[in-house]
Amino acid sequence: MATLTPTAPVPAAPKAGPRPIHGEKRDAGRQSLVYLFLLVPMAALAAAVPFAWSTGLLSWTDIALTVGFYLLTLHGITVGYHRLFTHGSFKPNRPVKIALAILGSMAVQGPVITWVADHRRHHAFSDKEGDPHSPWLFGTSAWALTKGFWHAHMGWMFEPRNTTNEERFAPDLLRDRDLVMIDKLFWVWTVATFALPAVLGGLITMSWQGAATAFFWAALVRVSALHHATWSTNSICHMIGERPFKSRDRAANFWPLALLSGGESWHNSHHADQTCARHGVKRGQIDTSARVIRLMEQAGWVTDVKWPTPERLARLAAD
């Protein structure tokens, strides 16, 4: 079977040269923020069920805000950070580009240029040395795969030297003034993603309790739930699942994650055809991110969408 070659600017693995794959070691302050914004929401997620059971503090307002912010920031990552900025699956107008970059930033998974550089490096070295988060870097024994799962799922973010050279892997984004500004203002979008649910919860219920529970559910729990949905694509979807298309790595389709991940868990399909705007290319494969792109295309907000045409799918399945 043949694999389509992506047309987005994902660099090939370098043979040698003065521009290293990895960047400098993260400074202590930035590494501390990684711990803060990953572990605090995770603690809230772990406490969510016993908290709701013991206090009963989960209202329909909390549920609506949690689902709403989850969907907005999820598609900021999947449609914006991933399919647009990393792979160039479509061309947006300027307001859509800016909105997607901000919504992706509000998922608290890192500034847009950093995220894209990491992900392009992942594709350049997928499941080989140089991949920032492959679960297959330590061997195939039970212990090696346990270690690999932890590394792929979230451990790689705690390694201060596992940074990516943005000049090498995201030079196009570094030339975009809008994205550079949004990248620099990542702290603003982080504050907003935690503050807005609390403000809205307080205003809707006209109470401090409403603000506090909305902050717990629609900010902390929602951020961590989305973190794990995204990280599962790096870990689970490179370990188990179906591989109907040929790719040069172990990316697999894992259907149970399709809805929570916005269609990102059709990962084998994506790695086989990286620039395609739809990852769930077969009938019945849920891909809400592709639906969002389709709606924007119908509204005239995006153009040049790379849809999975019969010819494109035929090349994927060719021997």
Score class of each variant (00 low, 15 high):
residue 294 R to I: 06
residue 240 I to Y: 08
residue 248 R to F: 15
residue 223 V to A: 10
residue 282 K to S: 13
residue 247 S to I: 09
residue 224 S to M: 05
residue 295 L to N: 08
residue 277 A to N: 07
residue 254 F to E: 02
residue 273 D to L: 11
residue 270 H to T: 05
residue 225 A to F: 08
residue 263 G to C: 08
residue 217 W to Q: 01
residue 241 G to I: 04
residue 294 R to Y: 14
residue 218 A to H: 00
residue 291 R to S: 14
residue 218 A to S: 08
residue 271 H to L: 11
residue 281 V to C: 12
residue 287 D to K: 09
residue 265 S to A: 15
residue 264 E to I: 07
residue 217 W to K: 00
residue 262 G to T: 04
residue 231 W to D: 03
residue 234 N to D: 09
residue 219 A to C: 09
residue 297 E to G: 08
residue 235 S to N: 00
residue 289 S to N: 06
residue 275 T to I: 06
residue 255 W to Q: 14
residue 234 N to Y: 10
residue 262 G to S: 11
residue 252 A to G: 12
residue 219 A to M: 05
residue 295 L to V: 11
residue 252 A to M: 09
residue 276 C to Q: 03
residue 241 G to E: 01
residue 281 V to D: 04
residue 232 S to D: 00
residue 216 F to K: 00
residue 220 L to A: 04
residue 249 D to Q: 04
residue 243 R to K: 14
residue 262 G to C: 09
residue 278 R to T: 07
residue 259 L to R: 13
residue 262 G to P: 02
residue 231 W to A: 13
residue 253 N to S: 12
residue 234 N to L: 11
residue 291 R to Y: 15
residue 240 I to Q: 04
residue 293 I to T: 05
residue 284 G to I: 14
residue 275 T to R: 03
residue 235 S to Q: 05
residue 287 D to F: 10
residue 229 A to N: 02
residue 289 S to G: 15
residue 241 G to Q: 05
residue 237 C to E: 02
residue 260 L to F: 09
residue 271 H to D: 13
residue 288 T to I: 07
residue 296 M to Y: 11
residue 253 N to V: 12
residue 230 T to M: 09
residue 278 R to V: 09
residue 220 L to M: 15
residue 234 N to P: 05
residue 217 W to P: 01
residue 263 G to Q: 04
residue 224 S to T: 02
residue 270 H to N: 12
residue 297 E to A: 13
residue 221 V to F: 01
residue 272 A to S: 14
residue 234 N to F: 09
residue 281 V to G: 03
residue 217 W to L: 03
residue 271 H to M: 13
residue 255 W to F: 13
residue 293 I to S: 01
residue 239 M to Q: 11
residue 224 S to D: 00
residue 218 A to N: 00
residue 262 G to L: 08
residue 260 L to H: 03
residue 297 E to Q: 15
residue 267 H to P: 03
residue 292 V to P: 00
residue 271 H to K: 12
residue 228 H to E: 06
residue 234 N to R: 11
residue 237 C to H: 04
residue 236 I to K: 03
residue 218 A to P: 01
residue 222 R to E: 02
residue 236 I to T: 09
residue 237 C to Q: 05
residue 285 Q to I: 10
residue 273 D to A: 15
residue 280 G to S: 11
residue 297 E to I: 02
residue 258 A to N: 08
residue 247 S to G: 10
residue 255 W to S: 14
residue 288 T to G: 05
